[in-house]
Design a protein around this nucleic acid. Structure first.
Length: 483
RNA sequence: GGGGGCGUAGCUCAGUCGGUAGAGCAACGGCCUUUUAAGCCGUAGGUCGAAGGUUCGAUCCCUUCCGCCCUCACCA
C-alpha cells in the first residue's frame, strides 16, 4: 500500500534490536490485575495501600528526561500516566524502554503515586512489550482531521479523536437500549434472509449476486418487511429485526448503500398503536441517553416530549403548499411541482407528484417530531386502505429535524387486495417485475391485523450524536477504492 | 450524472502575483531524574494527487483523469 519511509525504517530498526535481545515483540497474553476504570476510581485507596497494579494499554505519549521518562497509556477511552526511573528498574530494563515508540502496546506493573502536579501516575517496576507498532500515529493535539483518512482508516480516527470514539459508543448504547426496550415489551428478535431470490418491501434498486451451486441470481435485501410478515403469519405475534439493508442508489448525507434498519411488527395493532409505541421508544431512548426529552441537533433545539404532532399529508400540503390534494387534478399538481422547480417529465401519477411536493415543501419544515400520516395509496402498496378516508392508506412517516426516521403502516393483510396492488405495480414497471407468490400465499393462509414499523438506525444515531452526515455514524462508510 | 470547493512532509497547516518549497508536532543524534503541547542543540524527511499542454522554466496557468467534501439530480 504505502511505501516504506524513513519513519517506518526507524521502527523496523528498533524491532530488530528488540528481537536481538531475545524479546518477543508480539507475545501471546498478559495478565492484568486492574482495569483503567478501577485504577482511576479507586486511586486514593490503591495508592495509600501501596498495592501493586498491573495494567496494559497503548502508549500514546512519551516524554523522556534522560534517565527517567513519563508516558501515557490508554485503554481506548481513558489514559493513565506512567513514570519510569533507571535507578529503580536498572540500566538494561531502562534502555529497553528507550526502544519503545508511541503506538506500542505495553503491560506495566508498579505502584501508584501522585506527581508534583497531582496527576495520578503508576511508577513502573516492570514492563513488558505486548505489541510493537511500526507506523507513526497521527499528531497528538490536532488529531486526524482529513475526512477521507478518517473514513478510510477509521482505526486511526478512533485512536486520535475521542469524539469519534464517543459517537460510536453512543451508537452501541442506542441499539442496546432499543433491543432491551423491545425485549421487555415481549417482542422476539429474529433473523431473516439477506440473500433473497426476490426483493421487495421498498422501491429501490437492489444489489445482485450469484449463487454458484444453485446457479441462481440472488438479491441483497432492500427491506426485511416481507419475511417478518411471514413470521406474523407463522404465529409470532411480536417480532423485530435489526439488520443491514442494501440499496443500489445514490449516496449522500443521509444515504449509505448499506444501512441499518430496525423493523418491528405487532399483531392486533394498527398504525395508531405504532405511533404510541414509537413515541414511547424514542422518548425513552432520549431519557436513557440524556436524562431529558430535549436535544439539540445542528443548532436546532428539539423537544421530544409526547404527544408528537400528527398531520395528514393532505393537511400538510394545504398548510405549506397552499394546495388541497383532495381536490387538485393531476395537472394542477404537476403545475405546482413546476413552480417549485421540480422536473416532472419522468413522473407519472398523482401519488409520485404528491411525494415530490412533500419532499420539497413539507419535510424540511418538520423540525420538531412529527408524524406525517395518511399517504396516497399508489405509493404505499403494502399498507392497508384508510378505514374512513378514500384513496389514502393508514401509514405514517416520522420526521425529526427534517430527517426521515421511520415509516409505518397498518399492514395490508387482505391477500386479494395485496395481489391487486402488486399487479398494478408490476404493470406500471412493465412486465419484468416478479410477484412474490410465496408472500401472497402466506397472506392467504391468514395474517392477523398488524402494525409494522421501520426505523433508520443510522439517522437516529445522527440525531442523538448531533452528526451532520451518515458517514460519521457508520464505522466504515462506503468509499471509492483508493487506486 | 450536473455545479462548486479541496488535494503541499507521517499528522496539522503555511507558501510560491510562474524561478522545482517552509513551520509545529512526529522521526533521528546529543544533553537532561516529577514531565505532561517538557525543554535546549543539531540532523534528516517532499516525484507539491496523476498525466498531458503552454512556457526558457510549472507545485502555481490550461486540459483531462483520480480521490474526498458540499450541493442539485436520482432514490415510495
Amino acid at each position: 500500500m504505502k511505501e516504506e519511509s524513513y519513519l517506518l525504517q526507524a521502527r523496523r530498526g528498533k524491532l530488530e534490536k528488540i528481537k536481538s535481545l531475545g524479546i518477543d515483540p508480539y507475545p501471546y497474553r498478559f495478565e492484568r490485575t486492574h482495569s483503567f476504570e478501577a485504577v482511576i476510581e479507586r486511586f486514593d485507596a490503591l495508592s495509600a495501600a501501596e498495592e501493586t497494579v498491573t495494567l496494559a494499554g497503548r502508549l500514546i505519549s512519551l516524554r523522556g528526561h534522560g534517565k527517567t521518562s513519563f508516558a501515557h497509556l490508554t485503554n481506548g477511552r481513558l489514559k493513565i500516566q506512567i513514570y519510569i526511573r533507571q535507578d529503580e528498574v536498572g540500566e538494561s530494563v531502562y534502555s529497553l524502554f528507550k526502544l519503545l515508540d508511541v503506538g506500542d502496546f505495553l503491560g506495566v506493573k508498579g505502584r501508584l503515586f501522585r506527581t508534583k502536579t497531582g496527576e495520578p501516575t503508576l511508577k513502573v517496576e516492570e514492563f513488558k512489550l505486548l505489541s510493537k507498532s511500526l507506523r507513526p500515529l497521527p499528531e497528538k493535539w490536532h488529531g486526524l482531521k482529513d475526512k477521507e483518512l478518517r473514513y478510510r482508516e477509521r482505526y486511526l480516527d478512533l485512536i486520535a479523536n475521542p469524539q469519534t470514539r464517543a459517537v460510536f459508543e453512543k451508537r452501541t448504547e442506542i441499539i442496546r437500549f432499543l433491543r432491551s426496550f423491545l425485549d421487555k415489551k415481549g417482542f422476539w428478535e429474529v433473523e431473516t434472509p439477506i440473500l433473497q431470490p426476490l426483493y421487495g418491501g421498498a422501491f429501490a434498486q437492489p444489489f445482485l449476486t450469484h449463487h454458484q451451486a444453485l446457479d441462481q441470481t440472488l438479491f441483497l435485501r432492500i427491506a426485511d418487511e416481507l419475511y417478518l410478515k411471514r413470521l406474523i403469519v407463522g404465529g409470532f405475534e411480536m417480532v423485530y429485526e435489526f439488520g443491514k439493508d442494501f440499496r443500489n442508489e445514490g449516496m449522500d448525507r443521509t444515504h449509505n448503500p448499506e444501512f441499518t434498519q430496525l423493523e418491528l411488527y405487532q399483531a392486533y395493532a394498527d398504525y395508531q398503536d405504532i405511533m404510541e409505541l414509537t413515541e414511547e421508544m424514542i422518548t425513552g431512548l432520549a431519557q436513557f441517553l440524556n436524562g431529558s426529552t430535549r436535544l439539540s441537533y445542528q443548532g436546532e433545539e428539539i423537544d421530544l416530549s409526547p404527544p408528537w404532532r400528527r398531520i395528514s399529508v393532505r393537511d400538510s400540503l394545504l398548510e405549506w403548499g397552499g394546495v388541497d390534494i383532495g381536490l387538485a387534478s393531476e395537472g394542477e399538481l404537476r403545475e405546482l411541482c413546476g413552480s417549485q422547480g421540480i422536473d416532472t417529465t419522468e413522473i407519472s401519477g398523482r401519488g409520485k407528484l404528491i411525494e415530490k411536493l412533500l419532499d420539497q415543501l413539507v419535510e424540511p419544515k418538520l423540525q420538531q417530531p412529527t408524524f406525517l400520516i395518511d399517504y396516497p395509496q399508489e405509493i404505499s402498496p403494502l399498507a392497508k386502505s384508510h378505514r374512513s378516508k378514500p384513496g389514502v392508506v393508514e401509514r405514517f412517516e416520522l420526521f425529526i429535524c427534517g430527517l426521515e426516521l421511520g415509516n409505518a403502516f397498518s399492514e395490508l393483510n387482505d391477500p386479494l387486495e395485496q395481489r391487486k396492488r402488486f399487479q398494478a405495480q408490476a404493470a406500471e414497471r412493465g412486465g419484468e417485475t416478479k410477484i412474490d407468490e410465496d408472500f401472497l400465499s402466506a397472506l392467504e393462509y391468514g395474517m392477523p391485523p398488524t402494525g409494522g414499523l421501520g426505523i433508520g438506525i443510522d439517522r437516529l444515531v445522527m440525531l442523538f450524536t448531533d452528526q451532520p452526515s451518515i458517514r460519521d455514524v457508520i464505522l466504515f462508510p462506503q468509499l471509492r477504492p483508493e487506486e
